[in-house]
Design a protein around this nucleic acid. Structure first.
Length: 893
RNA sequence: GGGCGCGUAGCUCAGCGGGAGAGCACUACGUUGACAUCGUAGGGGUCGCUGGUUCAAUCCCAGCCGCGCCCACCA
């Protein structure tokens, strides 16, 4: 137990407290030997972290995501659950490979110079070097993950899970090799999945080509295209079967200009008579739609590109080796010279780009591995339909359903070096053996070929990063081994993530979890907003609008950042980050710190024997009840994932109720003579502060732990202390009413003083006219603090006439009289009262109008009507008293 | 083309059927022994527009106007 320093130093406290927590085992669930609260007997509560890129660094999205998870984790740990926050990182195939390639480039080395083994070695080195960055930064955020269980998607264990899943799905026919058009990234030289393709809005052109019809001199069919270079791969022209214009051409041939190939005109309803010329060139090798048409109509598939999207040997000599856009220009030039370019139109369109490389994606026909997502999606859709997994907010379920119901085969092979190499081996004749290991593949091959002497070559491709991420909720818990952790913590409880990865990750975890574990991976998916800059722009390095969470932590402390993100976490919106908000919540932390110092100075020592139920004074009964209200509101908000409501409730209670009123009320008690009241109020104040610190701990763990431990010797650190439950009987309606009256009295006197320009330094007397029994009792009981807070010399009941030159105001049935004849400006006071009367009149008119409406009285619920009547009566009474006050003023003249 | 969401105080956002809220900013006052990273008081809103439902609409419904985002095969 030590004295609190005058100012709070987050950087020092945060580092020290985090280390203590981690070293004491407070993050591990109690059954695993940790000291996570009283969790040994509690029910499991589990969250798996969305694994950040192992070589990445913390950005604002991580900060929000992990703050929310940590709040849930700390709250449940305090509730006594056996709480596990499973941390780890992702190998992030393409992203990481690109980073290392760029580093090599700087050394003038190409990946291919190094060779696969050496390159992968370099990536592991890079991982060793920078791999701790993000987890160190998560620690600075205060994330209470069980780091002893940290996993990496390319760990031995997780890799084992990946291989097993691949092999099993293959044996079940749910993974297969297929020759289809895939999204080819000509820069990264790999196939990518549909999700990794970004459609970008671009202003392009539509060129109309005239294709000469064979045997009909001077006759042409005109086709429109946005990609002239693909004409070299055309193998047909399609028209709609009902299109009268082209009916007689169906079955005829055109001679493809430049190339000279003879290609058929076919009827296919894909051709839309409304679009372009109504006739469409078909390039089955380089367009997804055309591929389908080609399949239906038996057209050839010609591939005209190489891996770099340069023209290959399938095209006329002069174009070979040309880059695709150069080829476009060359073809346009030639077509124009041939007089076959009919016209050009401007055309707005969307063009597919690789989300990593940023280059235009080329549909390319090749062998790849696919997951039968359609089959796996069925139970995953059902699980959300039946509510086994719920999205919060619920509207994201629509997004999930929409995508899952239209899901396409998932291309999972990548032509990269960094990742899980596909466990498939090819025999000399191309026969494929998918097994858990090379030995098993060899055994299978020997059996297949009926001989021992078999050469196998392993598929060089690796798996999509999201393949291993999809297994995260069970692979991290030890699957395929039957570990105690897997038994206790799967299914996990809630997945916390941004909506941008519902498809990439959430949907795939649902599919894999249900398929391999027969249970949903989590019962709740909490989708939070995306963090943007203060103008609402997506933060990006190229825009230069990135706010680095670590800068904010350094400047204001991790707690301030956490509170800001929590207060901003309203559901389903963008979070716009701005430094001034963080500053505001840093001030909140300072406020708590100073409140604690005030308590210490006044010898408010935490007393383990203190029982909030047994306090006597109205003041203390009131604040103790307010604590119970704040707890109820906070818990309710957290259970409903309304993080901002929890933050708001605690902020309002701490600052608005405890600091602004209770501590101010306590001051005269501390300064007074009543030893018993003093002792009780000291103990109560200390207790309330303890509760504040406890309730705030999930949101701002550092400062609260520091205050908890510094202010008293504690049996347990706050992180491992129980979440309080008070019971509703702590709330005392009479104490509430009484203190509420006192607050209103003081507020009104203050307002009138300010308005009448009574200087704060001037102490004045106050008299109550017509005060009822309750008001009289409250006035007597709380005279000291009323005098102090309203800056009065005296507060009593009016006997006899209202003194001349008094400022008057109405509080319930009573009239507040402030006799300040020497200070008062009669005209100003008259104006003030008239203004108040007008206000009351407006109210009265509204209520009268409402109550005069028969339909309202007949249809509205009784309590609403009754409420309106009461309000009317109140307003009328107040108005009458103000009226009297005005008359008195006039008579004083 | 389909879907989701947003337009509330100068700014950033809560609220979402019964008397318009918070933080920041702004104005005035303040050396009240916890706190100026503060205190007290105050100004500021036709709750995008138009209709409808309802006794009652910022809140529900429809249309419109602006603005985001996601999905989609438009030559």
């Amino acid at each position: 137990m030590a004295e609190l320093e005058k100012t709070y130093h987050p950087e020092e406290v945060e580092a020290r407290r985090y280390q203590e927590w981690e070293e004491s085992g407070a993050f591990a669930p109690a059954q695993a030997g940790g000291s996570g609260g009283e969790g040994a007997n509690g029910q499991p509560y589990t969250i798996v972290i969305p694994p950040p890129n192992v070589t990445g660094s913390l950005h604002m999205g991580h900060a929000l995501n992990n703050t929310l998870q940590d709040i849930l984790i700390r709250y449940h740990r305090m509730k006594g659950d056996q709480t596990l926050w499973q941390p780890g990182t992702d190998h992030a195939g393409i992203a990481t490979q690109m980073v290392v390639e760029r580093m090599l480039e700087a050394e003038g080395v190409k990946r291919t110079d190094l060779g696969r083994d050496k390159f992968v070695e370099r990536v592991w080195e890079w991982k060793a070097e920078s791999g701790g960055t993000i987890t160190r930064q998560l620690r600075r955020m205060g994330a209470s993950c069980d780091w002893s269980r940290e996993r990496f998607t390319m760990d031995e264990g997780l890799s084992k899970a990946v291989v097993k899943v691949f092999v099993e799905l293959h044996k079940q026919g749910l993974i297969y090799r297929d020759k289809r058009l895939v999204n080819w990234d000509p820069k990264l030289h790999t196939a990518i999945s549909d999700l990794e393709v970004e459609q970008r809005e671009t202003k392009g052109k539509m060129w109309f080509f005239k294709y000469p019809i064979e045997g009909r001199d001077g006759e042409y069919i005109t086709v429109g295209t946005t990609r002239p270079e693909t004409m070299l791969g055309d193998t047909g022209v399609a028209v709609h079967p009902d299109d009268e214009r082209y009916k007689d051409l169906i079955g005829q041939y055109v001679v493809l200009p430049i190339v000279g190939r003879r290609i058929p005109i076919v009827a296919d309803s894909y051709a839309d008579p409304e679009k372009g010329s109504g006739a469409v060139k078909i390039t089955p090798g380089h367009d997804f739609n055309d591929f389908e048409v080609g399949k239906r109509r038996g057209l050839d598939v010609i591939n005209i590109f190489d891996a770099d999207a340069h023209m290959n040997e399938e095209v006329p000599q002069k174009f070979q080796g040309m880059e695709r856009f150069a080829a476009r220009q060359a073809i346009l030039h030639d077509m124009e010279e041939l007089g076959l370019l009919d016209r050009v139109e401007d055309n707005a369109m969307t063009v597919p780009h690789g989300d990593r490389s940023g280059v235009v994606i080329e549909p390319w026909l090749m062998d790849q591995w696919f997951v039968d997502a359609k089959t796996l999606a069925k139970p995953a859709i059902e699980a959300v339909e039946t509510g086994k997994t719920k999205f919060v907010p619920k509207n994201w379920e629509n997004t999930y359903f929409e995508w899952m119901r239209n899901i396409q085969p998932w291309c999972v092979s990548r032509q990269l070096w960094w990742g899980h190499q596909i466990p498939a081996w090819f025999g000399p004749d191309g026969e494929v053996f998918v097994e858990l290991s090379e030995e098993e593949a060899l055994a299978a091959a020997r059996a297949h070929y009926g001989k021992d002497d078999v050469e196998l070559t392993r598929d060089p491709d690796v798996l999509d990063t999201w393949f291993s991420s999809a297994l995260w909720p069970f692979s991290t818990l030890g699957w395929p081994d039957e570990t105690p952790e897997l038994a206790a913590h799967y299914p996990t409880d809630v997945l916390v993530t941004g909506f941008d990865i519902i498809f990439f990750w959430v949907a795939r975890m649902m599919m894999m979890g249900l398929h391999f574990m027969d249970e949903v991976p989590f019962h709740t998916v909490y989708i939070h907003a995306l963090v943007r800059d203060e103008k609402g722009q997506k933060m990006s390095k190229s825009k230069g609008n990135v706010i680095d969470p670590l800068d904010l932590i350094n400047k204001f402390g991790a707690d301030a950042l956490r509170f800001t993100l929590t207060a901003f976490a309203a559901q389903g919106r963008d979070v716009k980050m701005s430094e001034s908000r963080v500053e505001g919540y840093r001030n909140f932390c300072t406020k708590i710190w100073n409140a604690a110092r005030f308590c210490d100075m006044n010898e408010c020592r935490p007393d383990p024997e203190f029982n909030p139920k047994s306090v006597n004074s109205t003041l203390n009964r009131w604040i103790v009840g307010k604590v119970a209200e704040a707890e109820a509101e906070t818990a309710k908000a957290l259970e409903a994932y309304r993080f901002n409501d929890a933050a708001g409730a605690l902020y309002a209670f701490t600052w608005g109720t405890f600091c602004d009123w209770y501590l101010e009320f306590a001051k005269p008690v501390f300064a007074g003579e009543d030893a018993a009241a003093k002792a009780e109020t000291r103990a109560a104040a200390a207790w309330v502060l303890d509760q504040i610190v406890t309730l705030l701990h999930p949101i701002i763990p550092f400062i609260t732990e520091e205050l908890w431990q510094t202010r008293a010797d504690r049996a347990q650190p706050l992180i491992s202390s129980p979440w309080p439950e008070y019971g509703a009987d702590l709330i005392d309606a009479r104490a509430n009413a009484e203190m509420d009256w006192v607050v209103r009295l003081i507020s009104q006197i203050r307002a009138v003083r300010a308005e009448m320009n009574v200087p704060p330094s001037a102490k004045i007397p106050m008299l109550l006219k017509d005060a009822g029994a309750g008001a009289q009792a409250a006035l007597t009981a709380h005279r000291d603090l009323i005098l102090r807070l309203a800056r009065l010399t005296d507060a009593g009941l009016l006997t006899g006439e209202v003194p001349k030159g008094a400022v008057q105001d109405v509080l319930d049935e009573a009239t507040i009289i402030l006799p300040i004849a020497d200070v008062i400006d009669l005209e100003a006071e008259k104006g003030r009262l008239e203004k108040e009367i007008n206000k009351q009149d407006a109210e009265i008119t509204r209520f009268e109008k409402k109550l005069g409406n028969e339909k309202f009285v007949a249809n509205a619920p009784d309590e609403v009507v009754e409420g309106e009547r009461e309000k009317l009566a109140e307003a009328q009474a107040t108005r009458a008293r103000l009226d009297e006050a005005l008359k008195r003023l006039a008579s004083m003249g």
